[in-house]
Design a protein around this nucleic acid. Structure first.
Length: 487
RNA sequence: CGGGGAGUGGCGCAGUCCGGUAGCGCAUUCGCUUUGGGAGCGAAGGGUCGCAGGUUCAAAUCCUGUCUCCCCGACCA
């Protein structure tokens, strides 16, 4: 069984690709680094999107949409920002094609006066708009989110984890005070953490990035980091305190209640389709995808088992009310009554697709008023009575959801440890996982560690820990920081 | 962008060294038998061998270029 999926320990990269393929989440596109998100993958993203969107609205945000194209001149207004993105921008230079024997070519006459950049992120075009929207402190705060696609011309891509075009949301807020903006930055970081843990069942650590890992143009970049099954870290979301950098670059001022003209304070925050990659690598196994119930496009599949047409009818008559009962209870249930596949085939397929719970019903169950429940996460099967099935399934889905989080947490905690000497660090980092160690706070030391071990500082925790001395230089260190090799 | 590997029906592969009628398994369609963990038999359909040039009487096979994917590095969410 599961012949089509490479085992994780044999080849983790191939396993990941096999899972994406067998779960029909996405295909490679004819364009390098881009992907076709298939209905299965998109339904998963839509569920994530829906939950996040509600959380954004519950914290006072509104959705809006800004253009795909950004005038080239906008990107040069914030020096740090342009430095961060210049090397990975798609540039539109012409507006027309013309026919030429059997094909088309760019019409050289159509060169644009000002070239357009396909957004790698939207700070610049949004802050250009905000300038016109903000005059008084009464216009603040502005709390806007956008669901969009962005393009970053990446060298090396992987489905969902890093694609040249990806889908995401980007929040962009404007505030009258620094305190308020910092508060917003941390609020949204917390929203991400809550979403990752409660919906994705993916435990995350949160903290602040070092200067070298910071978003170009930000004063501080906060992040959530998850640990994948292969021991590598994945940055799953970021929230930036932008200070007044963009307000100054785009001249966005407001008149405060004291009559003074002041620059606006800003934040931005985002998560992307990369989360799908994180979800896959957090829960899935050698049989395929595992999706937590809260995000599963199909939560329960019912597979009928029969030997002939009479039995088929009998079993379907038994299964149908179960289907309706679950549906009425608000459970995303699917009755797989396809006659051209055998039950075993269906079992394997739904496992590859990550459906959290499978119900099998056959003549034996009809006779005994039973059904067989099989959990995708544990692969355990049990025979239960058909009575109160909706209540039982609802409870079980909740159990699966919390078990997945607990399992992922345990897996992470086992691979998270403190290390005090650089010799130990060199040895430990080879084993993967998270390592808390002391660091002297300098970019030089950080760079040295990165060059020698390929590990980076994933985050500086927000809460205090014991002080100590840097494992490399022996200089004083205020607290431990989190190291890992990462995606 | 540098190094390595690969691209042949929908999927996985053989054939390439040594040029000579494009094959196998799975999948698909039809029929019969089957159905509690990826069913069996029979028949049928489907490929200008990634793409573009070149060499040759003849190219999947040799040469040049190019695109895409995988692995390793540098860069990044």
């Amino acid at each position: 069984m599961s012949k089509k999926i490479t085992n994780r320990e044999d080849d983790y990269s191939q396993w990941y690709l096999d899972v994406v393929k067998e779960a029909k989440l996405a295909d490679h596109s004819p364009v390098r680094g881009c992907m076709v998100i298939r209905p299965n993958g998109f339904a998963l993203w839509e569920n994530m999107k829906q939950a996040l969107d509600q959380m954004f609205k519950d914290t006072g945000h509104e959705n809006a949409y800004f253009p795909l194209f950004i005038p080239k001149s906008f990107l040069s207004k914030e020096a740090q920002h342009v430095e961060g993105f210049a090397k990975e921008c798609a540039v539109v230079t012409h507006s027309r094609l013309q026919s030429v024997d059997g094909g088309v070519e760019v019409d050289p006459e159509s060169r644009l006066e000002e070239e357009l950049i396909v957004r790698p992120t939207s700070e610049t075009i949004i802050w250009d708009a905000y300038r016109g929207w903000i005059q008084s402190y009464r216009d603040l705060p502005i709390l806007i989110n956008q669901w969009a696609n962005v393009v970053r011309w990446e060298m090396r891509t992987r489905l969902f984890l890093r694609t040249m075009e990806f889908l995401w949301q980007e929040g962009h807020t404007a505030h009258a005070t620094k305190e308020e903006a910092v508060e917003e930055t941390l609020r949204m970081l917390d929203v991400y953490k809550t979403f990752a843990e409660e919906y994705m069942a993916m435990p995350v650590l949160s903290g602040v990035k070092t200067e070298s890992e910071r978003f170009a143009g930000a004063v501080d970049t906060y992040c959530i980091e998850a640990l994948m099954q292969d021991g590598k870290a994945l940055q799953a979301g970021t929230s930036h305190f932008l200070g007044q950098n963009f307000a100054k670059a785009f001249d966005v001022k407001f008149q405060d209640d004291d009559g003074e003209h002041k620059y606006v304070w800003a934040t931005s925050w985002g998560v992307s389709t990369r989360l799908v990659g994180g979800l896959i690598m957090t829960h899935s196994d050698d049989h395929g995808l595992v999706i937590p119930p809260k995000l599963a496009p199909v939560q329960v599949v019912i597979v009928p088992i029969y030997k002939n047409d009479d039995q088929r009818q009998e079993v379907l008559d038994y299964a149908d009310p179960i289907y309706r009962e679950l549906k009425d209870a608000g459970i995303a249930v699917k009755l797989d009554n396809r006659d051209n596949y055998k039950p075993g085939w269906k079992f394997a397929e739904h496992e590859a697709r990550g459906t959290p719970l499978r119900i099998a019903v056959g003549p034996r169950d009809v006779k005994n008023n039973n059904l067989e429940l099989a959990r995708r996460d544990t692969l355990l099967k049990e025979i239960v009575t058909r009575d109160n099935i909706a209540g039982r399934i609802g409870d079980l889905l909740e159990t699966i959801q919390s078990d997945l989080l607990q399992t992922a947490k345990n897996r992470r905690d086992v691979r998270t440890r403190n290390v005090d000497s650089y010799d130990d660090f060199l040895e430990e980092i080879e084993k993967g996982g998270f390592i808390y160690a002391h660091w002297d706070g300098t970019a030089e030391t950080e760079q040295k560690i990165k060059e020698e071990t390929k590990a980076t500082i994933r985050l500086i925790p927000l809460e205090d820990s014991e002080s100590g001395t840097c494992m490399v230089t022996g200089k004083p260190s205020e607290k431990r920081v989190l190291f890992a090799r990462s995606y």
